Computed example of a mutant assay.
Amino acid sequence: MKERIPLEEGDYYLSEQGYKVFTEKYLLKRGYCCESGCRHCPYGYNAKTNTQN
Rank of each mutant, 00 (worst) to 15 (best):
M1E: 11
M1G: 05
M1C: 05
K2S: 09
K2L: 07
K2Q: 09
K2H: 12
E3V: 01
R4P: 00
R4E: 12
R4W: 12
L7W: 11
E8C: 08
E9D: 15
E9Y: 12
G10N: 08
G10L: 01
D11L: 10
Y12P: 00
Y12F: 15
L14E: 14
L14V: 09
S15G: 11
E16L: 13
G18T: 09
G18H: 08
G18A: 04
Y19R: 13
Y19M: 12
Y19E: 15
K20W: 04
V21E: 08
V21D: 07
F22I: 02
T23P: 02
T23S: 05
K25V: 06
K25P: 02
Y26T: 01
Y26D: 00
L28N: 00
L28D: 04
L28E: 05
K29G: 00
G31Y: 04
G31C: 02
G31L: 03
Y32S: 07
Y32K: 02
Y32H: 06
C33L: 12
C34N: 02
C34M: 08
C34L: 13
C34E: 09
E35N: 02
E35H: 12
E35I: 01
S36Q: 12
S36T: 10
G37K: 03
G37Q: 05
C38M: 10
C38A: 13
R39A: 13
H40Q: 08
H40K: 03
C41F: 06
P42C: 07
P42W: 06
P42N: 02
P42S: 00
Y43K: 04
Y43L: 07
G44Y: 07
G44D: 09
G44I: 07
G44H: 09
Y45T: 01
K48V: 11
T49A: 08
T49H: 07
N50M: 11
N50A: 15
N50H: 13
T51P: 01
T51M: 02
T51Q: 14
T51G: 00
Q52T: 12
Q52Y: 14
